[in-house]
Design a binder for these strands. Structure first.
Lengths: 306, 306
DNA sequence: TGATTCGGATAAGGATTTCTAATCTGATAA
DNA sequence: TTATCAGATTAGAAATCCTTATCCGAATCA
């Protein structure tokens, strides 16, 4: 397409001078000296080969050419300014884009999101649940909540909470022919596994080894692609899930799940809030991060441990 | 009003890059290197505190902010370009503003102007007849036709023709009781003077002295503020005018006036075409100047001298 | 699988543009 | 007549802008 335009700074100088009909006032507006405007305008006239002003001793007038030129230029600069303002505003008020893992979204964030909406009705949140680790340099997210080791180069990282893993089940499993009272009772129940792919996250094998319980095979039971599905199965009394505290906080609070017995296993993994450094301090992002920490302080990101 | 805009060159670089979704292509368009675009865009993102592109390895994408920004900027630059083109065009094709002395307008230019219109139907001519000497640095004229000594600083000056002065009268004055056959016959006729204010232009006093004729008082007769009025009076047989050849060329040709006798007096004054140096070579101005010289060559700016 | 290509990032230094300070000019106002 | 005002001009300083050279990582190719 290749536009042919005179030097842009000269255009701006001319536009201001034409608006004020004064080089001195234009200079004030643009925070330069009168000489600078004089130079720029002369340069523009030279480039165009057209004189734009008639210079009197204490008065400026536009030539015909200048008169046809100025209004359109003013419009163009106005439009640029408006576009800049609009873009800045939208950047501040546009939807906050958050990326989280599927299970965390389902079991932690989404149930709590109405509380954020109540606190900040003006901030729209777009939640993108995704299992793949999102690359902030590639995608255009404002904030992410990640379960991991906390090593995220080029990102601002805040530890949201340390997580731990323990067995949960429906209260119904305390009743019936084989009530689940001790780890040994697991023998009579289905184990619910999630295949979450964090190799360092404790699984049933670790837990059984840790407790030293005999006669329970760790590889029995159902497997689910996502923690949230395993939890859903546990709520449905289909078995016992070994799952992260953070994901079942609300279910335990509501009594949909119980912790039949300990222990809880710590892991190296924890929950981190990450955001691109360049935008980490934008108001809407700070608002969301602050709210996250308040929520964790309130309910305990992980459920209270008995 | 004071606008706050990011650096304009950075805006241009961004706009081109956003349009092509390629820094390299933008660089080609703006005739700079890819590195220059990279710098400008980065600088813009820094100034705004907002990232505008998502950089992939062989692909660029606009962020949301970039996407809202670009179209408006493109519009603004389009408008600037259009304004520039429009102004240039109008400068070429807009009316040609010519300033001439009153009498020259009436007696020379206006009668010939239809010929110019026939040759250049696309060029509108605006004739400003004015007795005061027009200052081209103050007023916005393309061309002037001046009677004078040819010393016009800062202007391009072309000699249109040398002028001379001689007596003219209506052919009717050759008849009647006192036919005008020799200078001495002037005694019985009214002298027509113009008060043109060019002190060096010969007047009746000079002419009578030059011819050596006796018994004719040079200060008799009627006086007119403009040569054209004196000529009009001569055509009406009201007397004998001493006038510039250039102004009566057409009247002599048409037989409305005759030259009863010589001599013609030279003067230092001549007719010059002047135009501001900066615009002297613009097509429409050149066209008009060329036409002026053609007209002079055709009819003889001054009437043919017997 | 390794080489190549492609497109952007980066660092350092140079070139150009832009600006300023100081002064001049010429007209108007006091 | 003098003061003032607004723009022009000049020379040189400051800031911006650009280039060269090189790096990097992914995609493509052989």
């Amino acid at each position: 397409m290749s536009r042919r335009l005179p030097p842009l700074n000269a255009l701006r100088a001319f536009e201001a001078a034409a608006r004020h009909l004064s080089f001195t006032k234009a200079a004030e507006e643009l925070n330069v000296t009168q000489a600078a405007i004089s130079h720029q305008v002369k340069g523009l006239e030279d480039v165009l080969g057209i004189s734009l002003f008639r210079r009197f001793n204490r008065r400026l007038m536009l030539t015909d050419a200048g008169q046809t030129y100025q209004p359109a230029l003013s419009d163009a600069f106005d439009q640029m300014e408006a576009a800049t303002r609009r873009m800045r505003l939208e950047e501040q008020t546009g939807p906050l884009k958050v990326t989280v893992a599927n299970s965390f979204a389902a079991k932690w964030l989404l149930p709590r999101l109405p509380a954020f909406r109540a606190r900040h009705p003006d901030i729209d949140v777009m939640v993108a649940a995704s299992d793949s680790i999102v690359d902030f340099t590639r995608d255009d997210f404002d904030l992410g909540i990640r379960f991991g080791l906390g090593r995220y180069p080029n990102l601002r990282v805040d530890l949201l909470f340390d997580d731990e893993v323990f067995p949960v089940c429906s209260p119904k499993l305390l009743e019936g022919p084989h009530p689940l009272l001790t780890p040994a009772d697991l023998e009579h129940h289905t184990l619910l596994h999630d295949e979450v792919g964090f190799s360092e996250l404790p699984h049933w094998g670790h837990w059984i080894e840790k407790t030293g319980v005999q006669g329970v095979r760790h590889d029995r039971g159902h497997r689910y692609s996502h923690s949230s599905l395993a939890i859903q199965a546990a709520i449905g009394a289909q078995g016992v899930a070994l799952t992260r505290a953070s994901l079942v906080g609300l279910d335990l609070e509501a009594g949909r799940l119980i912790r039949p017995f300990g222990p809880a296993l710590k892991s190296n993994y924890a929950c981190y809030v990450v955001s691109p450094k360049s935008t980490a301090d934008k108001p809407k992002i700070t608002a969301f991060r602050d709210w996250l920490f308040d929520e964790v302080g309130k309910t305990g990101g992980a459920a209270a441990i008995p």
